[in-house]
Design a protein around this nucleic acid. Structure first.
Lengths: 341, 341
DNA sequence: TTTGGAAATGTAATCGATTTCATTTAGGCG
DNA sequence: CGCCTAAATGAAATCGATTACATTTCCAAA
C-alpha cells in the first residue's frame, strides 16, 4: 500500500536503551519490574521512557512470549441479551488478569465460525469460551487438542471439553412445579429445537414435574421453535391459542420467547396471569420491563462468566479443569402471581 | 510459569521450508499468494504445509507488518441495545476486510477507558471507533495525533476527529412535530444530561417544534436523567405524573427511557396513547415488543456501523476522511397512533 | 553455442520485545 | 590490598513471519 500511515514513528526499546545509555535487556527488566536493577539505572531508564514517550509494543512482546493475551467468546448472536451479562462477568475477570476478549458472533454460520477458529489456529487468540449451541462440536473437539477451550452454558456431553452451566432439568422442573402449585394443570411448553441438549433437558424437567403431580402429558402443549427470538414466541403462542383446549399456563425456555408469548396473549385480549400465566427463563433485563413483569428462572450469568474465564486461564496454564454446575433460582413476578382459581 | 502449556509444538515456517526443500521466502510467497512462484514449487510447499498441519502465526506476521488487524469499539455499556445493531454493521465490514474487533465496555469509567486506550498505544489495536459520549475527549484528541480514530453516533464538535452520526436536532424536531400534529400541546421531554451534545441538540429540536406551532415552553416538562436506562425513564415519568398539569405526550430521547415511562404510566392505571402518548428514540428491537409498541426515531444503525469502519480503514491508510450525517426516520406505531382528541 | 533478460529462488535483515548466559561491577571480609 | 561472592549489566539468540536485494535458473533470440 503506497499510502502514508497515520502517526509519526514511535520509539522502540532500542532507542530507550540508547537514550538511557544501558542495554535493551536492562530496559526490558525495568519494564517488567524485575528487582535486579539498581535504583540509579532504573531512574535513568524511566526518565528515558518518559522523554521519548515510549510505549512497549505488544506485538514484539506477544511474539516473543508466544501468546496474544486475547481469547474468543463464541456466541450465536449479540442480540440475545442472555449472553450480555455473562460477557460482563467474563470481561471483569479477563481485564483483571490482563487479558482482552474478542467477541465473536457466529450467526450460527459455519463460515463465520471458521473465521474465528482460524484466529485461534493462527495464534491470534489463546483460548475459546464457547457459548454457541450451534457450534460444530467436531471442530471444537479437534481444536481442543491443541488449544484451551471452555464451554459456557451450552455444552456437549462427553466432548471432553470442560463446561460451566446450570442444572437445566431441575430448573425447568421447578418452573413447572411452580405453575402447578398455583393451580395450573394445562401447562404448555415453548421449547427450542431438541437437537440442543438444554432443550432436551428442560423438556425432561417439564415432564418430571407433570408426572410427579399425576398430570398427563398433552403433546399438543409442546411447541418447538427454530430460534429463541421474540417472533418465535409469538408464533408459538398463536398456535397454543388456536388449540381447542388452550393451556392456562405457559413455560417458555427463554425470556424472549416468553415476552413474545405475552405480546400474543395481549393481542388476543386475554389477560396475564388471570387467563394465562407465563414463565420465562434467563432473567434478562427486559423481563422486568414488560407488563406484567415476567416470572423467570434466574441463571447466575455474571458468575458463570467469571467462572468460565477462571477455568480457561487454568486450562491455558495446563492445569486440570473440572466442569462446574452453578445454582439457579426461580424469580416469581407478576406474570404468575395473580390469584388464579 | 512452570506449568505445561496446552498443546504440542506447532510447525513454523522454517520447518515447512525444510520439509519442502525451499527457502522460507518461497514459503512466505506461497502463503501470500504471490505469483512469482512456479507451479511445481507451489505444489511442493502446499504439500509440506498440509503434511505438517502448518498454520502461519499471526504474531510473527503482525510484528513484521507493524499491525494487529484489530480495532477497538468503545461503548459505555454493552447492555444498551442501541449499540448492538451498530456493532453488527461494524463486524460485517471488519470481517470482510480481514479485521477483527475488540468490544470495549468502559462503564463510563476512566480507568477502564485507559486500559483500552493503552491497547492502542501499545499497538495491540490499529484504530478506534468511539461511541462513548462519556469518553475523555482530551485523551482522544491526543491519541488521534498518532492513531486512527472515528467517532460514531456520539461526537465532539471541533475535535478534529471525523464522525458519522445523524441530525439529532432535526430528528427530535420531527418527533415533537408528530406529537403536535396528532393534537398534543402539553408535551414533555425526557432528556439526558445536557453535557452531552446530542442531548443539547435534541432539546433544540424540541424547542424549535414547539416554537413553530406557537406552544410556550413549560420548563417543568423537561426532565433530565443521569443515565439512559429503564429505571431512569420510570423515575422521570413519575415526576411528570406528579405535576399538577401533567403532559399528554412524552418524548424520550431513548427507547429504554420511553419503555420505562410506559411502565410507569401503566402503573398509574393510565392508558397509552389515549391518556398519554409516548415517543422514543433509536428503534431498538424491544421497541416493537412492548405493549403498546413504541413510536420512535429509527437511526440507520447498521449503516452507521459499516460507514464508521470504512472511514476508519481509510483513515488508517492515511486518506483524508470527511464526517458524514446519515438519514433518520420517524416510525409511527401504537404508542402514538390512538385517536387522541 | 552464446547471451541477455525475465522468472524463480535464496540469503539475510528486519519488526520489537524477552531471556539465557557471560561478563563486569560492587562490596564485604580477612 | 587482594579475594570472593553476589548483584548488576550487557551481548546475542530467539520468537515467526515478510521482504529488499542477491543470486541462480530458464528460455528465446542471435
Amino acid at each position: 500500500m503506497g499510502l502514508r500511515k497515520v502517526g509519526k514513528k514511535l520509539a522502540n526499546i532500542q532507542e530507550v536503551a540508547k537514550q538511557a545509555r544501558v542495554s535493551v535487556a536492562t530496559v526490558s527488566r525495568v519494564l517488567n519490574g524485575q528487582n535486579t536493577v539498581s535504583e540509579k539505572t532504573r531512574k535513568k531508564v524511566e526518565e528515558a521512557i518518559k522523554k521519548l514517550n515510549y510505549e512497549p509494543s505488544m506485538l514484539g512482546r506477544n511474539l516473543r512470549n508466544s501468546e496474544s493475551r486475547l481469547f474468543l467468546i463464541l456466541i450465536p448472536s449479540i442480540s440475545n441479551p442472555f449472553y450480555l451479562e455473562i460477557i460482563k462477568g467474563i470481561e471483569a475477570v479477563a481485564i483483571s488478569q490482563n487479558y482482552n476478549i474478542l467477541l465473536c458472533e457466529t450467526d450460527s454460520n459455519p463460515e463465520r465460525e471458521n473465521i474465528y477458529f482460524d484466529l485461534v489456529r493462527k495464534k491470534m487468540a489463546d483460548g475459546i469460551i464457547s457459548m454457541d449451541p450451534t457450534v460444530n462440536i467436531e471442530t471444537l473437539k479437534n481444536l481442543s487438542e491443541n488449544h484451551a477451550i471452555i464451554q459456557c452454558s451450552e455444552y456437549e456431553e462427553g466432548s471432553g471439553i470442560p463446561y460451566v452451566t446450570i442444572d437445566n432439568e431441575d430448573a425447568s422442573y421447578r418452573a413447572v412445579k411452580h405453575l402447578i402449585q398455583i393451580g395450573h394443570k394445562n401447562i404448555a411448553l415453548i421449547n427450542s429445537d431438541e437437537k440442543y441438549l438444554y432443550a432436551r433437558q428442560r423438556k425432561m424437567g417439564y415432564i418430571r414435574a407433570l408426572e410427579e403431580y399425576g398430570i398427563t402429558l398433552n403433546s399438543q402443549f409442546i411447541i418447538l421453535t427454530q430460534h429463541l427470538g421474540f417472533e418465535n414466541g409469538q408464533h408459538a403462542m398463536k398456535k397454543l391459542l388456536n388449540l381447542h383446549d388452550r393451556p392456562t399456563a405457559v413455560f417458555a425456555v427463554s425470556d424472549l420467547l416468553a415476552i413474545g408469548a405475552l405480546k400474543e396473549i395481549h393481542a388476543s385480549r386475554l389477560h396475564v396471569p388471570s387467563d394465562i400465566a407465563v414463565v420465562g427463563f434467563d432473567k434478562i433485563d427486559f423481563s422486568n420491563m414488560t407488563n406484567p413483569t415476567l416470572t423467570t428462572i434466574a441463571q447466575p450469568m455474571y458468575k458463570m462468566g467469571t467462572v468460565a474465564v477462571k477455568m480457561l486461564i487454568d486450562k491455558m496454564n495446563g492445569k486440570e479443569v473440572e466442569s462446574i454446575i452453578l445454582d439457579h433460582e426461580l424469580v416469581v413476578r407478576e406474570s404468575t402471581s395473580g390469584q388464579f382459581i
